[in-house]
């Protein structure tokens, strides 16, 4: 039985490797032979009137959409009644809505933070054109205001969590966010901790795959537009750091 399943799984794996090898060979040849020519006028500045205006507009639109979703979620949660005690659903409609609202809030913190950092980096760049000063200032202020609104909304969302789960309260008075996380995790029961472990492992695997994807992307970018080592080094260091954290925890548990 065991041998049968082994031989069954071996064949597709070999084929997969051969197919990956063939794809790699074709792409490698295409990139190194010079047949892949990048157009001279290609432009990544995503601009319409000002430099990078499409990029900033897109990011801020995403922040606004998520902001509306977050506010709508909070309003609906406030109006929703508590589920009955006899409800045997794995997750109640109110909990489902809260999870979605929390998700929107988390994504929005990340996107609004990236927008703010990009606006800051754009404002602090060494080359600046006078006519772009107003645009740069508006960008900077708008991204900062949006980030503050999103952060306040996240605070409201976490307050809602405390209302819904009084026995799992998030301590806003803890000295560090690490302490808050530790306290929250310690308060969870074994089933909830198991869900966190599973989610964290899935996030770890996804991050690993995405980091490799990012490195490959910048490798292709280097081939097409010239040697770009910094993003590859940064992504490599993040990858290394993530794996070091994983192994440190494994070693700590086996000590």
């Amino acid at each position: 039985m065991m041998n049968k399943s082994n031989s069954n799984s071996k064949l597709p794996k070999t084929w997969k490797l051969i197919i990956f090898g063939l794809i790699g060979g074709v792409f490698g040849y295409a990139l190194s032979s010079g047949s892949f020519v990048v157009p001279q006028n290609i432009d990544f500045s995503l601009s319409l009137i000002y430099e990078y205006d499409i990029l900033f507009a897109f990011l801020m639109l995403m922040v606004l959409v998520l902001l509306v979703a977050n506010v709508t979620g909070l309003v609906r949660l406030k109006a929703m009644k508590e589920p009955s005690q006899s409800s045997d659903l794995p997750i109640t409609p109110k909990e489902k809505l809260f999870n979605a609202t929390m998700k929107f809030s988390n994504y929005n913190i990340i996107i609004s933070f990236i927008t703010m950092v990009l606006a800051m980096a754009y404002a602090m760049r060494s080359v600046s054109v006078d006519r772009e000063n107003t645009y740069m200032l508006v960008n900077l202020i708008a991204s900062l205001v949006l980030f503050i609104i999103v952060a306040v909304l996240q605070n409201r969302t976490l307050a809602m969590f405390n209302q819904m789960y009084p026995h799992r309260k998030i301590n806003f008075n803890a000295s560090t966010s690490k302490e808050t996380e530790r306290e929250l995790f310690a308060e969870m029961d074994e089933g909830e901790q198991w869900i966190v472990y599973r989610s964290a492992y899935s996030a770890y695997r996804t991050a690993n795959a995405m980091l490799i994807g990012g490195i490959v992307f910048f490798l292709i970018y280097s081939v097409a537009f010239g040697f770009t080592p910094l993003p590859i080094i940064v992504l490599g260091l993040v990858w290394l750091g993530q794996n070091m954290a994983y192994h440190r925890e494994v070693n700590r548990q086996y000590r």
């Binding site: 005690q85 409800s87 045997d88 794995p90 969870m188 089933g191 198991w194």
Partner: peptide, 28 residues
């Protein structure tokens, strides 16, 4: 007993009881 009541009695969450009942989680 509701899931909530059982959870309270054993000091766990309702979600954990739901996970156990569905067979998704093997308790300690």
């Amino acid at each position: 007993l509701s899931q909530e009541e059982l959870a309270k009695r054993i000091g766990a969450s309702r979600q954990t009881i739901a996970l156990i009942e569905r067979g998704d989680y093997s308790p300690s």
